[in-house]
Structures are given as structure tokens and as C-alpha cells.
């Protein structure tokens, strides 16, 4: 199994498309950092709007590395599923397209093992992407913008809130958030890999994955009670942004944030369970179908 995994990772590492993802992340992060370095105040003004009538705030302090990373992740984690699909959607279909699938399946390697290894390789790729994002969006931002307390602008139901997390309470939240994002993106990887079993070129599963994510995300965001109550809980995309839960700090009765606390850990935990459930289910279906599949490519 480890031997196969090495082979898979080696193959991924040798493909140019692997590095597209890393380059794309670097580019997006750089643009964000440049834009905020140049004119972060406008963004702050937009977010603060009428609060500025009653409060003054040192905006240069507020636009710090921690804040930047949150802003970047907010946008980037919407795009990263595409990058994950780029690799995971190619896992089986790419081999089928090249004609190597039939060759590796005539090797003394069980299909279950192969699909698990493919999945694991996609997972490792996803984690590498996130590590890269952490380096670029968090550590580089910390270097450029410095470190200070972090402000979170948040819509909670009908209300908007501004949360402040003291700087010594931020890092662990990022680690947890990146961990959560890894689980969420692994669902995408599992989905893309499942779709890739049926295809003989990698474009189909990649596009199909992206379409599913987009459609589900759109449905997730339909603010109609009947959809919110009956459909939304069943869409995995509703849980993709759950990493933010780690930044929703718990507060006392009179609204003072409690250091080291989470507002709603059970909700995050349940989301994690649901996502992990999706991974197991998708992977199970993949194994089942792949074992049964006749290789005709």
C-alpha cells in the first residue's frame, strides 16, 4: 500500500497540472495582499459602514496578517474545490485516457487497494494545497501586515456582528480551520474521484464536480425557509464553510469574547461528522463500483 502510494505521489508530482494549483493559489493570494496593502482601508470602510459614525478604529492595526488570511480564505476556499477536482477528477479517468489503467489493473494490485491509494494521494495533494495556502495566505501575510487582534465581520441570521479575537487566541483557530478545510475539500476529492471512475477523459469529471459544487452552493444559499429547512441540511456544500466556526468566538452574557472558546462547537463537530460521512460514503461507492467495473478503455 505504501509502495503504491509512493508511486501515485510520484506520478502526481511529475505532472505539470499539479503545479497549476499551487501557482493559482500564489497568484490569488498575492493579488489580495497587494490590493489590501495598497487600499485596505476602502474594504474596511465598506465592512464598517455606519459603525464608523459611533466608533473610531485604527484600521491599519485591524488590517493585519490574521485578518488578511481570513479574508483570503473566505474567497479562496470557494475556488479551491476546482483545484482539488483538477487532480482527483483525473485519478482514474486520466489513467483510462492514457491507457495505463488497463496496464496497472493487470498488475498484482487489488482494485480496492488502488482506489484507496488514489484517494489517499488526492487527499495528500489537498493537504499540500492547504499547507501552501497557510504559508502564502497566513504566514506571508503575517510577515507583510504584522500581527494584531483579529476582527471577524459576520452575518448571523438577521444580525450582523463584529467579533474581535485577541492575537494570542488566533493561531490555534487557524490550525483547526485548516484541518476542517482539509476534511471539507476531501469530500470534493472523493466526489471527483467517484465521477472519474466513469469517464475516459479527465475533463468530464472535473467539470461535473465543479458543476455539482456550484449547483449545491447556489441551492445552499437560497434564503427561502422551505429550502433552508428541507434541502440545505442535505447538501454537503452547506458545510464547506464550517471552518469559519472556529473564528466564531464564544461570548459572555454581555458580549465579551471568551478567550479560547467557540460559540458553537457542537455545530462544527456535527458538520465534521457529516463531511466525514460523505467521504466514507463516496469512497465506499467508489470502491464498490470500481471493483465491479469492466475496464474497456
Amino acid at each position: 500500500m505504501l509502495r503504491l502510494l509512493q508511486i501515485e505521489l510520484y506520478k502526481i508530482s511529475k505532472r505539470p497540472r499539479t503545479y497549476i494549483a499551487f501557482a493559482a493559489i500564489s497568484a490569488i493570494v498575492f493579488i489580495f495582499q497587494f490590493a489590501f496593502k495598497a487600499d485596505g482601508e476602502s474594504y474596511m470602510n465598506l465592512m464598517l459602514q455606519n459603525v464608523q459614525d459611533s466608533f473610531s478604529l485604527d484600521k491599519t492595526k485591524a488590517i493585519n496578517g490574521y485578518f488578511m488570511c481570513y479574508i483570503i480564505l473566505n474567497t479562496l476556499l470557494v475556488q479551491v474545490p476546482i483545484l482539488v477536482a483538477l487532480i482527483a477528477g483525473d485519478a482514474i479517468s486520466g489513467e483510462a485516457n492514457m491507457g495505463t489503467l488497463r496496464l496497472i489493473l493487470t498488475k498484482p494490485v487489488s482494485r480496492t487497494e488502488l482506489i484507496l491509494v488514489k484517494f489517499l494521494a488526492s487527499f495528500i495533494f489537498t493537504v499540500m494545497l492547504l499547507v501552501w495556502m497557510a504559508i502564502m495566505a497566513l504566514f506571508v501575510s503575517m510577515f507583510i501586515f504584522g500581527v494584531d487582534d483579529m476582527l471577524i465581520f459576520r452575518v448571523k441570521g438577521e444580525e450582523s456582528q463584529i467579533l474581535q479575537i485577541t492575537k494570542d487566541d488566533v493561531m490555534w483557530r487557524y490550525f483547526a480551520a485548516f484541518g476542517y478545510a482539509a476534511v471539507a475539500l476531501t469530500v470534493i476529492a472523493a466526489l471527483a474521484m467517484l465521477l472519474s471512475i466513469f469517464a475516459e477523459n479527465s475533463i468530464g469529471p472535473i467539470i461535473a464536480t465543479v458543476c455539482i459544487v456550484i449547483v449545491c452552493t447556489v441551492v445552499s444559499n437560497i434564503n427561502v425557509p422551505i429550502v433552508e429547512r428541507n434541502v440545505k441540511p442535505w447538501l454537503f456544500t452547506s458545510y464547506l464553510v464550517g471552518w469559519k466556526g472556529f473564528f466564531y468566538i464564544g461570548t459572555t452574557e454581555d458580549g465579551e469574547p471568551i478567550k479560547g472558546s467557540l460559540e458553537n462547537w457542537p455545530a462544527i463537530r456535527n458538520s465534521l461528522y457529516i463531511l466525514i460521512g460523505h467521504i466514507i460514503l463516496l469512497l465506499g461507492i467508489s470502491v464498490f463500483l470500481f471493483r465491479k467495473k469492466d475496464i474497456l478503455s
Binding site: 465598506l46 465592512m47 459603525v51 459576520r154 441570521g157 463584529i162 458538520s271
Partner: peptide, 12 residues
Amino acid sequence: YKLPKGVTFDFD
């Protein structure tokens, strides 16, 4: 306080 709509994708 009201955040501008659509700038955050919040975890509900």
C-alpha cells in the same frame, strides 16, 4: 449594524 449583502459566505 448591517453588513453589506453577499460579501461574506457565513457558516450557518
